[in-house]
């Protein structure tokens, strides 16, 4: 458990950071909170030549509402910062709750939303609920910026579409007609447990019918996975136990779990069914929770 040698950079501005990222040779890693990066370095899974810390980019620590974009969350906002945000609690309580229950206090105090996304882990806790809420990410590079749906950002375990010189700066959650959303995670103890399976759901219910639903599965595919056939099965249906059961079964069929030390593929598939059912029920009955 020791840190291999690396060069440490602390750019003062976003532009400077992008320039550095573009110009540095060798293996370059961006450092936000460090809860993933430093751990990987200590166990030898990541050996960068350069660490570029974003700690001076104070503007990335804000959460604000912007007309037309919705709630905009700076990439360096910590999980605890998300939990404590009045704005998020008011509009999408499901996200603060996911951030609050994802890890122990030490981690939620230092880990950031941007890091949680760029890390690209299929079992990360924030991407499923963010994808369910239709979130987009803003990437800034030397030659400009681009905005894309979070769903398209993560492409494999630890893999994203971010370019060498790009920094994920903001996550935005658009204004939306959804009436409820929630994130359910199944871990093997009550605190400090990685997800065996997680399910995020966002629903729009009008006059007792489900007009739209987004269901995102964590830890059961190489990426946070949209359960598209489950979503399709709900559209236009009256809210009923049968409809929910049917969608839950479809979600289980959509999932592509593997067996590992936390659970077998068979168990995980069944857990997807159970937690999709529970998440849908909660989002339908209780709103954004």
């Amino acid at each position: 458990m020791y840190m291999p040698d690396y060069e440490y950079h602390t750019p003062g501005t976003l532009a400077e950071a992008c320039t550095l990222l573009g110009e540095l040779g060798g293996k370059v890693t961006v450092l936000a909170g460090g809860s993933d990066v430093l751990h990987k370095m200590k166990i030898g899974n990541l050996v960068p030549d350069h660490l570029v810390s974003l700690k001076n980019l104070k503007e990335l620590r804000e959460i604000r509402y912007e007309q037309g974009r919705g709630v905009v969350i700076g990439a360096l906002v910590t999980h605890d910062g998300i939990y404590r945000s009045q704005l998020l609690q008011k509009h999408f309580l499901s996200l603060p709750m996911a951030a609050h229950t994802m890890a122990n206090t030490q981690v939620t105090n230092i880990g950031t939303i941007g890091g949680n996304i760029v890390n690209g882990s299929p079992l990360a806790d924030l991407p499923p609920i963010l994808i369910a809420l239709g979130a987009s990410v803003k990437l800034v590079g030397r030659s400009g910026e681009r905005v894309l749906p979070l769903e398209e950002f993560i492409v494999g375990p630890g893999k994203t579409v971010i370019a060498q010189d790009e920094i994920l700066t903001e996550i935005s959650i658009p204004d939306q007609p959804t009436t409820g959303s929630t994130y359910k995670k199944f871990g093997l103890r009550k605190s400090g447990a990685l997800a065996v399976v997680s399910v995020a759901a966002a629903v729009t219910v009008e006059g007792g019918a489900i007009t739209d639903a987004r269901i995102v599965l964590g830890a059961v595919a190489p990426v946070p996975l949209r359960a598209k056939s489950a979503e399709a099965s709900l559209k236009g249906k009256k809210v009923s136990d049968e409809a929910i059961e049917e969608a839950a079964a479809a979600a289980a069929a959509d999932s592509r779990p593997i067996s590992d030390l936390r659970g077998s593929d068979e168990y995980r598939r069944e857990l997807v069914r159970v937690f999709t059912k529970r998440a849908l029920r909660k989002a339908i009955d209780e709103g954004h929770v």
Binding site: N104, L188, R189, K190, S191, G192, A193, L194, L261, R262
Partner: peptide, 27 residues
């Protein structure tokens, strides 16, 4: 909750406290 697990080469795969699940105060 607790079990030391090995891969098929005899190497421990959970020699840390995230996947060797000692209980927490919450449990």
């Amino acid at each position: 909750w607790e079990e030391v697990l090995f891969d098929d080469k005899g190497k421990i795969i959970n020699a840390e406290l995230a996947n060797y699940k000692m209980l927490t105060a919450m449990d």
